[in-house]
Amino acid sequence: MALDQSFVGRSYPPTDPYEVGREKIREFAVAVGDENAVYTDLEAAKRFGHPDVIAPPTFVFAITFAAAGQVVDDPQLGLDYSRVVHGDQKFAYTRPVRAGDRLSVTSTIEAVKSMAGNDIIDIRGEVHDETGEHVVTAWTKLVSRAPQEA
């Protein structure tokens, strides 16, 4: 079923802050096998001019995707999440996410399309720190596949 075009441009309220912890960054870096010291060693991070350890570039997805749940689960939109696959993902950084950040996400529906029976939705998540400064924007394209023909 085609999604309602009137949802294009709709923004959802900013999420409660997510506090980025050093150990959560370490856990993520270990999980992706990345031994860059800037993720785990404060002195290494400082040598590159960062005030605290930073997170790998894709770390923030867990935060923006949780925020996008407001869109995905919006009963008025009616997206069939059981059929959703991740199409595209993009990030644009003002600065890297770092330990101690308290990040809030504002999600906006950028586009809604139907192609060959698939529903396609583009969600933009603007991530700000607790001072209101922009940290990163995440664009997520979700594709809800058409039910298979009998």
């Binding site: 992706v32 930073i54 696959v85 993009k90 990030f91 890297p96």
Partner: peptide, 26 residues
């Protein structure tokens, strides 16, 4: 997969904070 692919860039530049944009299609 997206996290692994960018390691080629971050290992090259040293500072992952140097990445200003990153996008992929799955």
């Amino acid at each position: 997969t997206m996290a692994e692919a960018i390691r080629v860039v971050t290992d090259w530049v040293g500072d992952p904070g140097a990445v200003v944009e990153y996008g992929v299609r799955f």
